[in-house]
Amino acid sequence: MQYLLAFLIGGAICAAGQLLIDKTNLTPARILTGYVVIGVVLTGAGLYGPFVSFAGAGATVPILGFGYSLARGVEQAVERSGLLGAFMGGFTATSAGIAAAIIFAVAAALIFRPTRK
């Protein structure tokens, strides 16, 4: 059941992104950025948290989930450290993902070369 939900919800979030690509002049970079900011806003509004418990990876794997992690991190950090937490929380919560992207990108660049398509 959880797998079906992840498939349907995650798929629907991606399909919405495709509609934005095809029907608007938004570039992929703008859409990704918009999704992350919306993820933060929805979490702040108290909507995304319950959605994550419902849809599981269907809500955390799309880039909206990145916004969710940023906002969750800030919530916890502000609770702990006050205003300083507003600076710390986002990166603390997303550090694994960002560091993974950097480390694997550097490793891949040292191993692979781009190919003609």
């Binding site: 959880q2 797998y3 992840a6 498939f7 349907l8 798929g11 992104g17 990876a57 269907g58």
Partner: peptide
């Protein structure tokens, strides 16, 4: 996209 989320799950 749904398949990637299943993998994530």
């Amino acid at each position: 996209g749904g398949l990637i989320c299943i993998l994530g799950q």
